[in-house]
Write a protein that binds this DNA or RNA. Structure first.
Length: 296
DNA sequence: CCTTGAACCTGGGCGC
DNA sequence: TGCGCCCAGGTTCAAG
């Protein structure tokens, strides 16, 4: 499902329709996703204005004008799509585009905005996603966010910080990078890709990237750069569209065309001069893709 | 503390 | 066409 770049792409796609709009009605087509919706969820948010859309890790945050925030996690298969408001065709006739209901449409945001009415529809076949509402003053201490590590964007993530987290750890590097307490927002795809870019094996112990003095090794510094770059590249590409993930406007991200190792088992490694082959192994129940020839 | 495996749920792909 | 199995972008909890 959506990792950080996909959620960021969703946020950017939804923002023009949602920011500044009024949430006329929240339509819940079932009682729960992964968890039950909060008590009186729909009644609670009806009529509220939407201030802004933001993101923390893989959470989409919809800030309302009453000091509360709708928190949405897309799980493995969640997606949003927008039905724009009335649009004039070339003859000047207004049409209200309304896509037909699709299977697994679970939550519908009915909006009134400057561009007319719109609907934002949350679809999630596997229902591993969830939504909740949290007062903004409590956000940092809320269990969703309390233990999250730094964002891998910009300069928030540092090698010195990771050295402290990894020091003395026998934990597999793959698992350490998937742990949202270490870095927030990475998932299976981008961990595999960042490890390939930094020529590090997913089988390596996290502690081997830290010197005896507790400082980051050059390898760890390279890993931090690779993580930042792969996330930035993926956001710029609109995320990765595998299976059911689409952008809010229905278009596809295209970072999947830039995968070097993810889902490329048995294909040649693209490190210049390497000549190796991409392997797939299973670690902690997840597939890891890597080149044993150039990643150590 | 550690790591692994199962669980949550539906659907797509593949082999037979 | 169908069935059974494996796999899937995440997270959490139990068990060893």
């Amino acid at each position: 499902m959506p990792e950080l770049p996909e959620v960021e792409t969703v946020r950017r796609g939804l923002a023009p329709s949602m920011e500044g709009a009024v949430l006329k009605e929240l339509e819940l087509r079932r009682n729960d996703l992964r968890f039950p919706f909060p008590a009186d969820f729909a009644r609670h948010v009806a009529g509220r204005g939407i201030r802004s859309l933001s993101r923390r890790a893989k959470y989409l945050l919809i800030d309302l004008d009453d000091g509360k925030t709708i928190v949405a996690h897309l799980g493995m298969s969640g997606s949003f799509r927008v039905e724009a408001g009335a649009v004039a065709d070339t003859a000047g006739t207004f049409h209200h585009p309304r896509s037909k209901d699709e299977k697994h449409d679970h939550v519908i945001f009915h909006l009134a905005g400057a561009g007319g009415d719109a609907r934002v529809i949350y679809n999630d076949p596997r229902r591993f996603g969830f939504m909740d509402i949290v007062p903004r003053v409590d956000m940092a201490s809320h269990p969703f966010f309390r233990d999250l590590g730094p964002e891998p964007t910009g300069n928030e993530l540092g090698a010195d910080y990771l050295a402290k987290r990894f020091a003395g750890k026998a934990q597999l590097l793959k698992s350490a990078l998937l742990d949202q307490k270490n870095i927030a927002g990475l998932g299976n795809i981008y961990v595999c890709e960042a490890l390939w870019r930094s020529h590090l094996s997913p089988l390596r112990a996290a502690g081997t990237l830290v010197t005896d003095a507790g400082k980051p090794t050059e390898a760890l510094q390279g890993l931090v750069v690779a993580i930042r770059e792969v996330i930035a590249d993926a956001i710029a590409a609109g995320g990765s569209s595998l299976r059911d993930h689409i952008q809010a406007d229905g278009s596809l991200g295209y970072f999947q065309h830039s995968f070097s190792v993810y889902d490329r088992e048995a294909q040649p490694c693209s490190t210049p001069g390497c000549g190796g082959t991409v392997s797939r192994i299973v670690q902690a129940g997840r597939s890891s893709f890597y080149c044993a020839a150039c990643q150590s």
